[in-house]
Each structure stands twice: as C-alpha cells, then as structure tokens.
C-alpha cells in the first residue's frame, strides 16, 4: 500500500483492494512457504536449538568453541571462501565478457559449456579430481613425462587442492550473473567512450567495470556463501591443514555424536555468513548510481 493511494480519495475501496491483492499474493506463495517452513525452517530451528540446551538453557557449547580449533577453522573457511570467490570472479569474468560479446548462438554455446558440469554431481567431479591430483595421478604423470619434476608432488590433501576443486565446481555461479549484467550494458556506451577518446583499457576501467559491479558482487557473494558451507570437496581432497567448518561440524555429529556441539558450530557459521552477506549487500547498494545501469 503506497502513501499516495492512502491519501487519495476512495480510501476504503483502495484499502480493500490492497488487502485482496495481498491475500492473492499470500495464497500464491502458500505452497512454497509451507514447504519451506515444514521442511527447512522447522528442522533447522530444531537442530540449532540443540546448541543452547544442556540439561537446561546453557551457553556451554558456545564457550567450548573458543578453546577449540573451531575459530581457526572458521577463519580459514572465511578466507578460503573469499579466495575461491575472488578466483572464480577473475576466471569467470573473461568468459562472461566473451559471452556478452558473442552472437546469440555463440553465447548459447559458451553458456552450455559453462552449465554442463552442473549436471554432474559434485561428488563425482571431486573424485575425478582426486584421480588427477593424487600422488600417482594424471597431473604428476604429466609433469614427470614433461621432465618438469623428478619426483611426484603431493597435491592432494592441501589447501591448494581444495581451492582448485572448489573453483572448478563453483565457476558457473559467477559466470551467469556476470553475463546477465554485462549483456545488459548498452552497446553504444563503450562505442561512445571510444569516440570520446578512450582506449580499450580505459573504456573497461571507466565504463564497463563500474557498470558491471553489481554483477561482480552478486557472483562473488553467491560463490562465497556456497563455499562457506562446502562439505564434500574439503572432506575428500582436503587434509587436516585445509579443513573447513562444514567438515568439522560433520565430524562432531557423525564421529563424536555431539549434536549440541555441532549445532553451536552451525549457529556461529550461519551468523558469520549472514554478517558477511549483509556487508556485501551493503556494498552493492552503496553506489546508488547503479540504479539506472541496466
């Protein structure tokens, strides 16, 4: 209900109309909302509430987090997720840019290449990477054959391995929002910039980049958030030194059977991720000027 419509005449009618619209909207939303609440929010809340129950209400599970390796693992999760986000953005940008510059068929072809990996399960792709990265794996074979190394290297169970595989898995999530953004920049803007005396690099810096900043932030945010909760990849190709929070939570629950402790870890992860998300979203809306970019 807008201020204008309340102020204007025929107020009861308009209010009634507004209510009816809201009702229709609610009805349309209802199925999804019920599913969400029943299958997601209720179990989530149920699980998270375990963290504050220890006999009675207690913060014991949270204070133990301070003594544990938890904080260092959380910190590692955050910076590794940020790094994965940054690498994905850097790698995805040229792909998205090329897509936006291609013909419709070209863009569809590149888009398909980007999307196809999404149809294979993460588990499968991660196992494929272990074949590549392991001690007697494809990569070491290749480097040995080329004579670049004399001894096989240990790629597996390192941060590098985790980051590499996560970048591979998450790349599509940054390409698509970026492409949408880049494609919405009117063609005549770079042309105009060129006519006004700008060279390729300066067109990019002064026109293209500022106009696709929302897409960059959206893509980065998506990858970052997905990364903070990644379980399969760090568990399979990572080791103790590259452990991420999700793996720690999983171990707490399935090995130590300490659900309450796992729940406390989850609460902190969720809160941290939410704060990061809020900060990124602020960044995105800080520049009000983007309003008319598309």
């Amino acid at each position: 209900m807008t201020a204008a419509s309340i102020v204007s005449s025929g107020r009861p009618l308009r209010l009634a109309l507004g209510n009816r619209r809201a009702l229709v909207a609610l009805l349309l939303l209802a199925p999804a909302l019920v599913l969400y609440v029943a299958l997601y929010f209720v179990p989530l809340f149920d699980f998270l509430s375990l963290s504050v129950v220890d006999g009675g209400l207690s913060t014991a599970h949270f204070s133990t987090l301070l003594d544990m390796t938890y904080l260092s693992v959380l910190w590692r999760t955050l910076w590794m997720s940020a790094l994965v986000g940054a690498i994905c953005t850097a790698l995805g940008f040229p792909v998205a840019y090329l897509m936006s510059r291609s013909s419709a068929i070209g863009a569809a072809a590149i888009g398909a290449c980007v999307m196809v990996p999404l149809w294979t399960s993460v588990l499968l792709r991660t196992y494929a990477w272990t074949v590549v990265l392991q001690y007697r794996g494809v990569l070491n074979d290749l480097l040995l054959t080329l004579g670049l190394i004399d001894q096989p290297l240990r790629f597996m169970y390192s941060k590098g391995a985790v980051i590499t595989v996560m970048v591979h898995v998450l790349l599509p999530y940054v390409v698509l929002p970026l492409y949408t953004n880049l494609a919405s920049i009117p063609r005549e803007l770079p042309t105009a910039a060129r006519g006004l005396g700008a060279t390729g690099l300066r067109i990019f810096i002064h026109v293209t980049l500022p106009l696709c900043l929302p897409g960059v932030i959206a893509g980065f945010t998506l990858v970052f958030v997905l990364s903070t909760g990644f379980f399969v990849v760090p568990s399979l190709v990572g080791g103790p030194a590259s452990m991420m929070v999700a793996t720690l939570i999983g171990r707490e629950i399935s090995e130590n059977l300490n659900w309450a402790q796992g729940a406390a870890m989850s609460v902190v992860l969720l809160a941290t991720a939410t704060v990061c998300l809020a900060m990124l979203s602020r960044l995105r809306h800080m520049d009000k000027r983007q309003g008319s970019a598309a």
Binding site: P210, R289, A293
Partner: peptide, 11 residues
C-alpha cells in the same frame, strides 16, 4: 558524436 540514444554514461 551525438547518438540517437544519447549514450550518456548512467553511472
């Protein structure tokens, strides 16, 4: 140059 759609930089 002045283009039909002005081509002003929106940002």
């Amino acid at each position: 140059h002045v283009f039909q759609k002005y081509a002003l930089f929106p940002h």
